[in-house]
Amino acid sequence: EADAERVRELLSDLDELHRRKYLLTDISIFMARWEEAVARRANKVEDKKGRFWEGRFHCQKLLDTASILAATIYVELNPLLANIVELPEYSQYTSLVKRLKLVHLASGHSMEHLMDSDKLEEQAMLKEDVENQSSPKLVTNVLVCEQFLPFGRHKYLKVLDYVSRRKRLGKSSTTATAEKLLVRLGVEPDRWRKTASTFEESYRLFAGSPELLSQTAVEKKKRCLHGMRTARYVYHP
């Protein structure tokens, strides 16, 4: 329940009340306030004090495409790895479901088809041009943030599939497509795949190739950065 005294206080100055309400129409401000409120309550429940976020959230700077891809897939597969869902596409709060909807709308076919058929990928790619002219409104936010990777959503989904169920896929075309793309990004596919499921432990503050990590270390005047061992193992020399 809201503290009655603070409610009264707010109601005594209606201009201030409406100013605060108006501020929340900015999505960034709303998210910041909301997360802060959630974190405060979580701190209270877990009886934590001191620093506000208490290590519950932290930033990782992603230095190249391979690390952006690994981090994105790590987030998308999080509910699966935590055993909250049986299949990644069942996750309620990841962008994956929206991406799949886009593919679905673009190709006019169901998800099962997409995951298993090569012909469909070609068809869908042909249709991608058409789709660009009439973007489905339903999933516009994903459309906006989709261009952060230098390849299309079909390849992205293949890589995601490759990470999430490699064993079952065996030597399929999905494996071939994903591996080819990953090699192009400068990583050893099978080794990279493991970091996509353990991303937070694999790297700390910075993630990327050994060269980029060394460069960052020099810039930050650090001798070495956590994650260098992983990077040397994952990236092609």
């Binding site: 809201a2 409610v7 707010l10 109601l11 306030r33 909301w34």
Partner: peptide, 14 residues
């Protein structure tokens, strides 16, 4: 939503 409800929600959020 009336002002009282808005105030309550703001207090809960902040």
């Amino acid at each position: 939503m009336d002002d009282v409800e808005i105030a309550k929600r703001l207090v809960r959020l902040y």
